[in-house]
Amino acid sequence: MQDSNTNSGQGLRTADGADPSVLVFGRQVYAVLAKDLLLEVRTKDALTAMLVFSLLALVTFNFALDLRPEVMSAVGPGVLWVALVFGSTLGLARTFAAERDHGTLEGLLMAPLDRSALYLAKLLANLIIISAAATVSVPAFAVLFDVAVDIPAVLGTLLLGAVGVAAVGTLFSAMASHTRAREVMLPILLFPILVPILIGVVQATGLALGSPTARDMPWLSLLVAFDGIYVAVGALVFDFVLQE
């Protein structure tokens, strides 16, 4: 992964003399991740936005689709996932927009920091925040719509999907933060690319809820494969997005 940083031209290189580079890489990821999470714990900006938006989306869907218990096993997975993904774009958009607004992006870019480590740290921060939001919204979904949900199973599926969302979302939020209409650009870039994740998560959740329309496929393994591809491609091309 560190190879993707070779043609970045600028930025100090970590001294590989004392430590094995894997350890250095791990420490870099940890440093940025800890910073982002501490910031989030203090402000709770992204988490609040995601949670309120997701719950509001669930309530809105209830009126828009007239969600009665008998239709929930078929429609429920989609409702849950759309609420979560739409909510998470709010948090994803802040990943780099906040760094730009505070003028701290230059600091991050000048720091002796591997770009892949930065990508991975930002991805993990997003993933943790999305997971936290999901941990609240899944039980809320079960209670509000009176669906017998195997909460650990559904939560696990959603988290597999969230890895893909965070992987692509982190990459695109770095690009969208430089565009004119950045709130608009992120979802427009994100949603078409994420169609496979959407299909995988909704089908897998459908199987878990006993939906009649879900196709019997190894969706969880497919999700793991998709996640692997998105994270690998994201880590490889992230360097190009941040070259200033």
Partner: peptide
């Protein structure tokens, strides 16, 4: 929407790569 030409070129190149890699994944899923 990206005002700077060099930056627009870089960003869209990244999307051009990610988007095309995604094509078979979308197709099969």
């Amino acid at each position: 929407y990206t005002p700077d030409l060099e930056r627009a070129a870089r960003f869209s190149a990244v999307l051009g790569i990610v988007g095309f890699i995604d094509v078979p994944i979308i197709h099969f899923s």
